[in-house]
Simulated scan of single mutants.
Amino acid sequence: MNKVILMGRLTKDPTYRLSRSANPTPIAQYTLAVDRKYKVQGQSETDFIICKALGKNADFVEKYLKKGMKIAIVGRLQVHISDNNGTRRYYTEVIVEEHNFAESKSSYQSINNNQANNELNGGSQTGDGFVPVNEDDDLPF
């Protein structure tokens, strides 16, 4: 059985496109920041999981999900292998089958307001322990 359940926050607004097939399929992709349960030396660690939604799920993502939102997802793992000049690379992503909101709209809006205030004031962390990610940062994806 291949089943994944995750809860985290979107690191930036999702991307949305149509596939290049004869019957174009909507595809939405985003990265979910998921905190690990255990802390190392008092610091929590975060995993950044690439998530992809297809069809009606992609339409839902494009319409409702924005940077900073806390969501819970259910899906399956998919591994891609690519060969580049004899070097094999493995890419793992979650194909999302179900999206669930994990906080109220007012909570999300207050967190976004706090993030904006922190960025204006030079702060580096939101009230719930997440560090805002700038799109210019060198992230591993």
Rank of each mutant, 00 (worst) to 15 (best):
G55I: 03
N57A: 11
N57M: 01
N57C: 02
N57P: 01
A58Y: 06
A58L: 08
D59I: 10
F60P: 04
F60A: 03
F60S: 05
V61P: 03
V61N: 08
V61H: 04
V61C: 11
E62C: 10
E62Q: 14
E62K: 15
K63E: 05
Y64Q: 03
Y64S: 04
L65S: 01
L65Y: 00
L65K: 07
K67Y: 03
K67Q: 11
G68K: 01
G68V: 06
G68I: 07
G68R: 04
G68Q: 10
M69W: 04
K70N: 10
K70E: 07
I71M: 12
I71K: 09
A72W: 03
G75R: 08
G75H: 11
G75I: 08
L77Q: 00
V79H: 06
V79W: 00
H80S: 09
H80I: 03
I81F: 00
I81P: 01
S82F: 07
S82D: 07
S82A: 01
N84I: 08
N84P: 02
N85T: 06
T87G: 05
R88F: 00
R88C: 02
R88D: 00
R89C: 01
R89S: 06
Y91L: 04
Y91V: 00
T92C: 14
E93R: 11
E97C: 03
E97W: 01
E97H: 08
E98I: 05
H99L: 15
H99N: 15
N100F: 15
F101Y: 13
A102T: 07
A102L: 08
S104R: 13
K105H: 09
Y108N: 08
S110D: 11
S110Y: 05
I111F: 14
I111L: 15
N112A: 11
N113V: 02
N113A: 13
A116R: 13
N118Q: 15
E119R: 13
